[in-house]
Write a protein that binds this DNA or RNA. Structure first.
Lengths: 341, 341
DNA sequence: CGTCATTGAGCCTTTCATATC
DNA sequence: CGATATGAAAGGCTCAATGAC
């Protein structure tokens, strides 16, 4: 395996000094057209690519941006957001890379610290809460987590739990009074926030809470929960607020097993607007988050910060409730399929 | 913003030479316990973290592994696989990072070349086809794409399109003879492979093909397609093989709009076993891929290759057909809910 | 002559200061 | 004196060779 060509090799082949090669590549310095040509050809023949480590050692710049996440899987649009973000960054000649940090707290601290302290990144976009106490990094950091003060206002307003409130007042307006919450894994902040918003809405809107049940993020667990909910509880007319579309799907099935049809006898809402949610029968009423827009905005913010430029404007509304069949609504355009009989 | 501490700073504080600091950190060389202690304390107080660029310049090693993907979003388990892979790697002190390359061919070539040529990676795990003609890299490469000869056998057997054949012979055994394929975005190899497998199976099993329709990967498109399929075509008893669960969900809805109930009048299969697929009504018959296992195995393979160690054994069966309600089957355990009336 | 610690060279690049025509 | 090209240092680290006791 041949060792990769260095600028020295290029220089030798082109018959110039290594410095000249550097000037040609940087585009700085006065270089005659002929020399430039010769150098460029040499680069070509040798398939030369500058050594990033050496480059960054000299300049202090790495061009690398880290995107921190713990769960590339859970939220459907979640990582797609990162992809969108990547587009922005690439255009600006930054290399964004996704680092998946451990879920376990101890391991996570370690891996986070590695990223922060390595000095390898000019900027860090974190979708997980970060403890920057010792701030071991020179990197600019943008934390887009509901847990963090820094961007709290935007994250809370743009991708927070508020829609729970809107969802529930919408259901109240449709005549529902008795509510049930199927919570996600309460280890997750988003699950806790949704639960809290649920409880707050129950209180503020003067509704009846029939209970909060943790279902992890799992459909299996949800099915068990729904099967075992107070056997003598009258589920007629109940409104189930599920923490995401997986739980919502499982809830609908669970209710059906108990003879409760959605939306005829009970209604269900989800969260995430998964790609199938609009097509299932009944189609799920859910909260869609424009993660692509959010991710792009987050990345633009980071890049601005890295460059000490003014940060981009607030991204505007990013969450939207899609009222669909699972709450008895009929989506525009789509003919309502014959759900039964 | 203070500049980060270097090993030189540590040395000064500990009252030793910079070399000694290096030896302590590497764990090589003979160092007395006292000296070691002093150095470690100095590191602690200064929050010292070695400069990776300098380190890698000197050693030629970077400890970095790249995971290449174009679509962190599309396949549900797809990126989760990378996460699983990360666990393996981290235990081995490698830092795996996900690079999202552009979807557009020209841009992609560029970004792939950046990754390969940068010399920043010791190993590359690619989930996209790679053109290694000029092999501009010293990195060890493992390509886990259906397109590539290198690992073709394993990818094809483990996460390839074979289940299409099993799926269809299973449906044939259930009495279906007339088939329809809803293809994914044919830009994607996986979509083409599934289509080809579908056509091959039709031929081999002596079935009737009612048509192949490209639906992108989109439910909306699928709905349109199903609405517009030959209005006078008798859909009674038809078996629809969809390229993934999104298309399958939309297909079921589309059929319902036309008065064709699944599974009573027609059957549908999907792919991916999305988290909701087991809970939708009807639950989807689909192909589940154990991406976590696949990702972990792929990463172990890469690490072995990077280290010139023997590669891990074949991961065994990774795909499984889940026969569920959408083909008229009743999943074990789950009571069949009253789907209608 | 072991044991522990240090000196110095080199990895590849950028950039300032200097040399040449 | 312009216009081009070059020498040499520096950046943080590792490791072979060397020094001090």
């Amino acid at each position: 395996m041949p060792r990769p060509a260095t600028s020295k090799d290029v220089a030798r082949l082109a018959g110039v000094s290594q410095t000249t090669v550097s000037y040609v590549l940087r585009g700085t310095g006065r270089i005659s057209p002929q020399t430039r040509r010769r150098v460029e050809e040499a680069c070509e023949t040798l398939h030369y690519r500058p050594n990033l480590a050496a480059q960054s050692m000299r300049t202090g710049r790495t061009g690398r941006l880290a995107i921190l996440t713990a769960t590339p899987g859970i939220s459907p649009g979640g990582l797609l957001s990162a992809a969108a973000a990547a587009t922005v960054a690439v255009a600006e000649r930054y290399a964004p890379e996704i680092r998946v940090v451990a879920v376990e707290p101890e391991l996570r601290a370690e891996s986070v610290h590695d990223v922060l302290g390595s000095g390898s990144f000019e900027g860090i976009l974190s979708f997980i809460p970060l403890d920057l106490e010792h701030d071991p990094t020179r990197a600019r950091v943008v934390v887009m987590s509901e847990a963090f003060d820094d961007q709290m206002r935007v994250t809370d307003e743009r991708i927070g739990a508020q829609p729970v409130r809107r969802l529930m007042s919408g259901l109240a307006a449709r005549g529902h009074r008795r509510f049930l919450h199927l919570a996600g894994d309460l280890e997750y902040l988003s699950a806790r926030k949704r639960r809290d918003a649920y409880l707050a809405a129950v209180a503020e809107l003067g509704l009846t809470d029939l209970g909060v049940h943790e279902c992890g993020w799992s459909g299996e667990r949800t099915l068990e929960v729904v099967r075992s909910i107070g056997p003598d509880l009258d589920l007629e007319g109940v409104a189930v607020v599920a923490a995401n579309d997986i739980l919502a799907s499982a809830a609908i099935r669970g209710l059906l097993e108990r003879g409760v049809r959605v939306p005829d006898h009970a209604v269900v809402t989800g969260w995430d607007d998964m790609p199938t949610s609009a097509f299932q029968v009944p189609a799920l009423t859910t909260v869609g988050v424009d993660f692509a827009a959010f991710g792009a905005w987050a990345m633009r913010t980071l890049i601005a910060r890295v460059r000490d430029e003014p940060e981009p404007a607030d991204p505007g509304e990013l969450q939207r409730i899609h009222w669909r069949e699972s709450t008895g609504d009929v989506p525009e355009g789509a003919p309502h399929p014959p759900t039964s009989g």
